[in-house]
Amino acid sequence: MPEETSQTTFKITDAPIDDAQVEGVFVTLADVRVDGQSLEGFSKTTIELSALVEGQTLTLGELDLAADSYSSLELVLDTQTDAAGNTPANYIALANGTKEELEASAETIRVTDGFEVIAGAANEIVIDFDLRKTITKSQGALEADYAFASTSQLEAGIRVVNEQATGEIEGTVTDSQDYAETIIVYAYPEGTFNAEAETQGEVQFANAVTSSKVSGLDNSYSLNFLEEGTYELVFASYEETEGSVNFATLLEVESTTGLNLGALTLSAALQLSANVTVTGTL
């Protein structure tokens, strides 16, 4: 009996970068490979990753894959020119109108996260390129310097999921007492958040599955492409200083409908609503 295969679509998305100076993050991919096989329909592409937030995606290409688990996904960076033949190939666009090149220690990113192709399903594999974890920033005497994170951090900062097996947690945040200038919501597997460890180091909240900036007229957030499981939500306050957004403190919140924000159970295709009110700081 022939092995069952599925035409599998590959997409890319992003979790937002926490930096008010950044207008856009542009990354040029020369190739995308699964088990050494290049995606069909893919050509060299320059992607504005920072625009692909709140569940927005860009389709990269397709492959006919057997129903199975896969752990070999490679993103190949072009480090010379972008898709239009211009330099730099990978860069940060800053609010002051300048570009800063993003340099990588390796051209090939071997993603450590695996994914599953499901038999008989419309498989859409989402590559979540988390800019918080994959871009580093160091403050020089006159301006900040940006770069890709180390190869190991870069590979660990990209997760891959089958959209068929994911859900979403969305909601609004009421902060009537103005406890925070900017609020970012982080999703962690239940019981894994360690406040001391996660608010220190070069990459803060490094073990969050994904994050979302509270924004819009309704102060909403959307945590997308979460695999089935139980999650705890962490709400953090950020302050803007000289154009840079920096972590200030954790926020104390309560659900407006009595949900346990430390144990939200999510199943595939479920959109869970978790509206909260900020009651103080921690």
Rank of each mutant, 00 (worst) to 15 (best):
D145C: 05
E101I: 08
E196R: 10
G280F: 11
E101W: 12
E116W: 05
Q80G: 12
I183A: 03
Y188R: 09
G36H: 01
D82L: 07
A30E: 02
S72Q: 15
S43C: 04
V34Y: 04
G229W: 04
T45G: 03
L60T: 05
E40M: 11
V214Y: 04
V234Q: 01
N260R: 05
V53N: 03
E107S: 12
T151Y: 10
G85A: 08
A165E: 02
T210I: 03
F10S: 05
E190N: 13
S72L: 10
E74D: 06
A236D: 15
S273P: 06
E252P: 02
M1T: 08
G41F: 02
T9L: 07
V76M: 07
F205I: 10
E23K: 13
A147Y: 03
V111G: 02
S150N: 09
N207G: 07
V203W: 05
T277M: 13
E254V: 06
V245P: 03
E198K: 01
L75A: 03
D130V: 08
R132K: 10
A195T: 11
L49W: 04
S43N: 07
A187N: 02
F235I: 03
A106Q: 06
E168N: 14
N260H: 02
T112I: 12
Y221P: 01
V32T: 07
A248E: 10
Q164N: 15
F42R: 13
A95H: 13
A187V: 00
D130E: 15
F148W: 04
A206R: 05
T87C: 11
F205R: 00
P2A: 13
S105A: 14
F193N: 00
A121Q: 12
I17R: 02
T166D: 04
R132W: 09
T5G: 07
Q271W: 09
T59I: 13
I17T: 04
F193R: 06
E227D: 09
T28W: 04
S244C: 09
T79H: 03
A66P: 02
R33A: 02
G243A: 08
E198G: 00
K133A: 05
I127L: 04
L250T: 07
A165D: 06
G216N: 15
F115V: 14
G157A: 14
F148C: 07
I184E: 06
V117H: 04
P189Y: 03
I158K: 05
A144H: 14
S105P: 07
Q153K: 14
E254F: 03
E242V: 09
E198N: 06
Y91C: 08
E23R: 10
D145E: 15
T108N: 08
I127N: 03
P2C: 13
V245G: 05
L226E: 00
G201Y: 09
F205S: 02
N86L: 14
D130M: 06
N246G: 10
L65P: 01
I92N: 02
S273A: 11
E3Q: 14
L63R: 01
S220L: 10
S215T: 13
I12V: 14
S6Q: 11
D31M: 06
G216W: 15
I125A: 03
R159T: 14
E107W: 08
T199H: 11
Q164G: 15
L233Y: 04
S222W: 09
D35T: 12
D64I: 12
L226V: 01
F235R: 00
